[in-house]
Design a protein around this nucleic acid. Structure first.
Ligand SMILES: [Mn+2]
Ligand SMILES: [Mn+2]
Ligand SMILES: [Zn+2]
Ligand SMILES: [Zn+2]
Lengths: 150, 150
DNA sequence: ATTACTTTGCAAGTAGTTTGCAAAAATATT
DNA sequence: AATATTTTTGCAAACTACTTGCAAAGTAAT
């Protein structure tokens, strides 16, 4: 089988998968939403909104549309956010089967990821990987009792 | 002993403690730095830069100075940051003896804190406290091997 | 096809934060 | 204590990431 046909098949699959996910989450199917979601399915990220915008075919949609789509994906939990650099959100497809976290180098900003989810163990593993001067930031988000009543 | 004298003593203690901390961290002692650090020692936070600015005596320093001081405190690790709301940094004094994390209500934005540091246990405890629809975000920060060499 | 509703591009606006620069304050040197 | 050197500050302007109003274009239900 020619590799060209193979990669074309993959694109179709991503598009089909995107359409399915959009519909399943009550979002209408538009060109920008399909493109952005396909991209996040294909490349794992996490990516900033600008990185995503630049990865899209030129002039294919506006940067404001990228932000709007990403916000909708976050609302529907199709996409997760990470705040790794100050003032700059990063986005990636939320695959609950592959829950994971990130480490960013304080100097070169390279982002690495890991699947462990217990803090001491994570820190030991990161030390083994050669990281130094490790810090972490852990925040929880939920709805408090007061707000559940109101 | 009159309570007035007592509270005055406390203020002196905070100022003395601030001066000590500034010097220990190689920062020169200035009025804004003393005021901001004293405030963070007195009230735990976490507070946004604007909240801190508004808590200071009126016209006592510029908002840009508050940002500059907070950034220096973060660099020297006197202060920790939390990114609880999108695009809005929160700051609090970093007391290594009282390592803890935060939960923010998705609706009313009220910030609560807890000292547990293992994820499953934390989530169980938060459920017991009455929170619903809990998510978490955990990021690590460190210096990678490549950057240590360079 | 027609209708009702949603989304988009564009340009302008906003929030939070940073920066250049001259004046003022803090520290080091004499 | 006076002076020199270095650092910090206030102010205004700039900047970055992100959002929004609105008219035109697209989507989806009938
Ligand atoms: Mn990831
Ligand atoms: Mn706290
Ligand atoms: Zn690095
Ligand atoms: Zn609440």
């Amino acid at each position: 089988m020619p590799s060209h046909a193979h990669s074309h098949k993959k694109v179709i699959d991503l598009e089909a998968k995107s359409i399915e996910l959009l519909k399943a989450n009550g979002l209408s199917v538009t060109a920008p939403r399909k493109m952005i979601l396909s991209l996040l399915l294909k490349e794992h990220g996490p990516f900033s909104a600008e990185e995503i915008f630049k990865k899209l075919p030129k002039y294919s949609c506006d940067q404001a549309t990228v932000y709007r789509c990403l916000n909708q994906f976050v609302e529907t939990q199709l996409v997760n956010t990470a705040y790794l650099e100050k003032e700059l959100a990063h986005f990636e497809f939320n695959d609950p089967q592959h829950h994971h976290h990130h480490i960013i180098c304080k100097l070169c900003k390279k982002i690495d990821s890991f699947h462990d989810c217990i803090l001491d163990k994570i820190e030991t593993n990161l030390l083994k990987k050669g990281y130094k001067d490790i810090q972490h930031r852990l925040e929880f988000f939920g709805v408090c009792e007061t707000c559940q009543k109101a």
